[in-house]
Amino acid sequence: MAAGGDHGSPDSYRSPLASRYASPEMCFVFSDRYKFRTWRQLWLWLAEAEQTLGLPITDEQIQEMKSNLENIDFKMAAEEEKRLRHDVMAHVHTFGHCCPKAAGIIHLGATSCYVGDNTDLIILRNALDLLLPKLARVISRLADFAKERASLPTLGFTHFQPAQLTTVGKRCCLWIQDLCMDLQNLKRVRDDLRFRGVKGTTGTQASFLQLFEGDDHKVEQLDKMVTEKAGFKRAFIITGQTYTRKVDIEVLSVLASLGASVHKICTDIRLLANLKEMEEPFEKQQIGSSAMPYKRNPMRSERCCSLARHLMTLVMDPLQTASVQWFERTLDDSANRRICLAEAFLTADTILNTLQNISEGLVVYPKVIERRIRQELPFMATENIIMAMVKAGGSRQDCHEKIRVLSQQAASVVKQEGGDNDLIERIQVDAYFSPIHSQLDHLLDPSSFTGRASQQVQRFLEEEVYPLLKPYESVMKVKAELCL
Rank of each mutant, 00 (worst) to 15 (best):
A230T: 12
V115T: 12
M65T: 00
S9M: 13
V413F: 01
K391P: 02
M26P: 11
K246M: 05
L377C: 09
N71A: 04
Q286L: 08
N357G: 12
L108W: 08
L346Q: 00
D32A: 12
K276A: 04
T382H: 10
Q416W: 12
I269K: 15
I351H: 01
T227F: 13
F36A: 14
S395T: 07
A146W: 11
Q184F: 07
I57P: 08
N274C: 10
A273V: 10
L352E: 02
R33E: 06
D223K: 00
L155S: 03
T158R: 09
S359G: 15
Y13A: 12
E328H: 02
G419V: 15
R296W: 05
D6Q: 10
D32H: 04
L352G: 08
E79H: 04
C340K: 10
L423S: 07
A235L: 11
E50T: 13
E228M: 02
L131N: 01
S301E: 02
T111A: 07
A381S: 15
E250T: 05
K134L: 13
R303C: 15
D332Q: 01
Q177C: 03
R337M: 05
R234N: 09
R137D: 07
E213D: 00
T350P: 03
Y13P: 15
V262E: 02
L131Y: 11
G418C: 14
V92F: 08
M225Q: 00
T330R: 05
I369N: 15
D6G: 10
Y432R: 12
Q439H: 14
A78Y: 07
I57L: 13
S395V: 02
R33G: 05
E462P: 12
K134C: 05
P133T: 12
G156D: 03
A453C: 07
R245H: 00
K134I: 07
K218A: 02
L341G: 12
E425F: 13
D420S: 11
K233Y: 08
A3T: 14
W175C: 05
L468F: 05
I424A: 05
K391A: 14
P446H: 15
K367R: 12
C266K: 04
A392Y: 01
M292Y: 14
L355A: 14
S359F: 04
K75T: 11
L17S: 13
E481F: 00
T166P: 04
E383V: 12
L53I: 09
Q161W: 02
Q408N: 14
K187V: 08
